[in-house]
Deep mutational scan, measured.
Amino acid sequence: IRCIGVSNRDFVEGMSGGTWVDVVLEHGGCVTVMAQDKPTVDIELVTTTVSNMAEVRSYCYEASISDMASDSRCPTQGEAYLDKQSDTQYVCKRTLVDRGWGNGCGLFGKGSLVTCAKFTCSKKMTGKSIQPENLEYRIMLSVHGSQHSGMIVNDTGYETDENRAKVEVTPNSPRAEATLGGFGSLGLDCEPRTGLDFSDLYYLTMNNKHWLVHKEWFHDIPLPWHAGADTGTPHWNNKEALVEFKDAHAKRQTVVVLGSQEGAVHTALAGALEAEMDGAKGKLFSGHLKCRLKMDKLRLKGVSYSLCTAAFTFTKVPAETLHGTVTVEVQYAGTDGPCKIPVQMAVDMQTLTPVGRLITANPVITESTENSKMMLELDPPFGDSYIVIGVGDKKITHHWHRSGSTIGKAFEATVRGAKRMAVLGDTAWDFGSVGGVFNSLGKGIHQIFGAAFKSLFGGMSWFSQILIGTLLVWLGLNTKNGSISLTCLALGGVMIFLSTAVSA
C-alpha cells in the first residue's frame, strides 16, 4: 500500500470489461488503480535517471590570480610587451599612462603600459546536455494484498515479495511487465516523455548541487567559461569578468580578483528545477510519464477462499488518510488461513446495510499462523458509518465519521480527471477507425466523469442509474429551450454510458 502517505494521489477506475487503462505517473504523486474483478494496485514513479550526459560548457565562479607582471614604455618608444601576453592562462590589459620627467621619461606624453596576471579557477559549475534516449524511469508497484503497516513504502525485498514489484522503462524499451506472483502480471506500455523539453534544458552542477536550467539563461551567464570537458589546462574565455584592473600608474597597475560568485548564482537559480546525482547518473524529480496498463493477466487472489471465522482485533486505531479513506490494521487469532476477511461498512448496526467501498479488493489472510496481521483500506461514505470486521458474535466494529460532501468530492474528481486527460493529450485517442474513435470517446468520458459518477451514484443499482439517464434524455427531447435540451441530452447520455461502463 504505497499511496496512503502521498498527498498527491489519483484514483483511476477501469471500465467494466476493459483490459487496459491509461494513467499519468508523476514525481511526488501516486496512482491507485481499481477495476472490477482485479486486485487494487498502487503505482508510483520513484526516480527518473539520466546517463551519458555530455559537458557543454563550464563557468568559473571563484578564481585566484598570481605571478603579476607589468612592462611600460616612454612616449615614442613603441608598445610595451610581455611574453605572458601569448599565454592563455594569463589575463592581460594594455593601456596608456601619462609619462614625463617625473617618472623617468625625457618627453612628456602618453606611454604604453601592459599588465598580466595568471588566472586560476578555484571553483566552477558545469552544464551538461541531456539526450531523451538516455532517460530511465523506475516504477514501483504494490498490490493491496496481505501486507501490514511495516511494509508500507518499503522498497527492500521486492524481489521475493509477490505484493510488490519494480520495473524500469526507457525510450528504447518502453514496454515492461511486472510479475506479482499469485496476482498474475501487469503489463506497462509507457510513452517516455517527461513533459520537459530537454532540447531547451541543461543539467547544471555547482558545488555538489544540481538544477535543470534553460539553455539561453545558461549561455548568457557573465562569467569566465570554457567549452567542452575539462582537459586539465582549460582555456578560459572572458577571464576579465572576475578580474579587475585598478587605476594605472606610470610603471605598474594593481590587479585584484573578485570574490566568489556562488551567492549571486544561487539567487539567479531561484525557482529552477532541482535535481540530484546518483553516482555518474543524474536524478530528476520533475515531469511525468504516461503509461497504458494492460490488466488482462491480472487476477484476484483468494476468490475461492472461505470466510475467516475466528476473532479479529484492531492492532491500531483506524486512521484517516490524506485522501479521506480509512486504513485499518487487524490481527487474526485463527489458524484456518488462508481465508477471506469479512469486512464491510454499514450505516447502522441493526440492518448492516453496506455503504462505501473497499479500496483493498478481496482482502485475505494468507498465513495459517496465529496472530497474522493484515492492513486494508476503505472508502467510507460522508457522515457517520460503522466499520464491521468478522462474522457472528466475534465481529468487531468501529464508529467512523467522514466530513465533507459527495458533491465536493465529485467536483474534485472531475477536475482531476480533466487534468489527466489534458496530460494524456492525443495519445488517449485513436482515429484509425470508426470503432477506435468511439472507443476513445468512451475512454475520455470515463477518465473525466467516472470518479464523479461513482461518488454521486455508486450506491444505486445499474438499472436505477439507466432509468435516471433515460429520464434526462426524455426531458431533453421534450424541452423547447435549446440549451436546457442539449444539457439534459448530454447528461442523460453520459449517465447511461457510465452506468453500463463503470464497474460497481
Rank of each mutant, 00 (worst) to 15 (best):
I1P: 00
C3A: 02
C3E: 08
S7M: 13
G14Y: 06
M15V: 12
G17W: 07
T19M: 09
V21W: 05
V23L: 03
V24K: 08
E26I: 04
H27G: 13
G29I: 00
C30H: 08
V31A: 11
V31E: 02
V33F: 05
M34I: 08
A35C: 12
Q36L: 02
D37V: 00
K38P: 00
D42Q: 05
L45I: 13
V46S: 10
V46P: 00
T47M: 15
T48K: 05
M53L: 15
E55H: 06
E55P: 02
V56S: 00
R57T: 04
Y59P: 02
A63D: 09
S66R: 13
S66G: 07
D67Q: 08
M68V: 15
A69H: 10
A69E: 02
C74A: 05
P75E: 09
P75N: 08
T76E: 06
T76S: 15
E79G: 08
E79K: 11
A80F: 11
Y81K: 08
L82K: 08
D83H: 05
D83N: 11
D87H: 06
T88L: 12
T88Y: 14
C92A: 04
R94S: 15
V97R: 01
R99T: 07
R99D: 08
G100T: 03
G100Q: 08
N103T: 04
G104C: 04
C105I: 05
G109C: 07
K110E: 11
K110A: 03
G111I: 03
V114I: 13
V114E: 13
A117T: 11
F119V: 08
C121H: 05
C121N: 05
C121I: 03
S122E: 13
M125R: 03
G127Q: 04
K128V: 00
K128Y: 05
K128F: 06
Q131P: 00
N134D: 12
L135G: 01
E136N: 04
E136G: 11
S142K: 01
S142A: 15
G145E: 05
M151F: 02
I152H: 12
V153T: 10
N154Y: 06
D155T: 00
Y158L: 15
Y158T: 09
E159S: 01
T160S: 14
D161W: 02
D161I: 01
N163F: 08
R164D: 04
K166M: 01
K166S: 15
V167T: 02
R175L: 04
A176Y: 09
A176P: 01
E177C: 10
G182D: 13
G184T: 05
S185R: 03
S185E: 05
L186G: 02
L186F: 11
G187R: 00
L188T: 01
R193P: 01
R193V: 01
R193F: 10
T194K: 15
T194Y: 14
G195K: 05
D197K: 07
F198K: 06
F198M: 09
L201D: 00
Y202A: 07
T205V: 14
M206D: 07
K209R: 13
K209I: 04
K209A: 04
V213I: 12
E216K: 13
E216V: 12
W217M: 11
F218P: 05
F218H: 09
D220T: 04
I221C: 04
I221P: 01
I221D: 03
L223F: 03
H226S: 07
A227V: 10
G228M: 08
A229Q: 13
A229F: 01
T231E: 11
G232S: 12
P234H: 15
N237D: 09
N238L: 15
A241R: 11
V243T: 11
V243K: 06
F245K: 05
K246Y: 03
A248Q: 07
H249M: 12
K251E: 15
R252N: 04
Q253M: 15
Q253W: 15
T254Y: 03
T254F: 12
V256N: 00
L258T: 05
L258K: 04
E262A: 10
G263L: 05
G263C: 10
V265Q: 13
V265K: 13
L269W: 12
G271T: 10
D278W: 00
G279Q: 12
G279H: 07
A280M: 02
L284T: 06
F285R: 01
L289W: 08
L289T: 02
L298K: 04
L300D: 05
L300V: 15
K301E: 13
K301V: 08
G302A: 01
S304E: 00
Y305I: 02
S306E: 00
A310W: 09
A311M: 12
T313G: 10
F314P: 01
T315E: 09
K316F: 03
A319V: 15
E320D: 03
T321E: 07
T321R: 06
L322M: 14
G324Y: 09
V326K: 04
T327G: 08
Q331M: 15
Y332C: 10
D336R: 12
G337V: 01
C339E: 08
K340R: 15
P342M: 11
P342C: 10
V343I: 15
Q344H: 14
A346W: 15
A346D: 01
V347M: 13
V347E: 11
M349Y: 01
Q350A: 07
Q350T: 04
T351P: 00
L352E: 10
L352F: 03
T353K: 02
R357Q: 06
I359F: 07
I359V: 14
T360Q: 07
P363Y: 04
V364E: 00
I365F: 02
I365C: 04
S368G: 14
S368T: 07
T369H: 00
E370N: 07
K373R: 15
M375G: 06
L378Y: 06
D379V: 08
G383F: 06
D384W: 12
S385R: 12
V391Q: 02
K394R: 15
K394Q: 04
K395E: 08
T397P: 00
T397E: 09
H398N: 02
W400I: 10
W400S: 07
S403Y: 15
S405K: 06
A410W: 12
E412F: 11
A413W: 07
A413L: 14
A413K: 09
G417Y: 08
G417S: 10
A418R: 01
A418Q: 08
K419R: 15
R420Q: 09
R420I: 05
A422F: 00
G425W: 01
D430L: 00
G432N: 14
V434C: 12
V434K: 09
G435A: 15
G435Y: 14
S440D: 09
K443P: 06
I445C: 14
I445T: 12
I448M: 13
F449V: 10
F449A: 05
G450W: 13
G450R: 07
A451K: 12
A451I: 08
A451L: 00
F453P: 13
K454L: 04
S455Q: 13
S455I: 11
F457N: 09
G458E: 13
M460R: 10
S461M: 11
I466E: 11
I466H: 07
L467S: 02
G469A: 14
T470L: 10
L472Y: 04
V473R: 00
W474T: 06
L475D: 10
N481C: 08
N481R: 01
G482Y: 12
I484E: 11
L486C: 14
T487Q: 10
T487R: 03
T487W: 11
C488H: 07
A490S: 15
A490M: 13
M495A: 03
M495C: 08
I496A: 06
L498I: 01
L498Q: 10
T500Q: 11
T500V: 00
S503P: 06
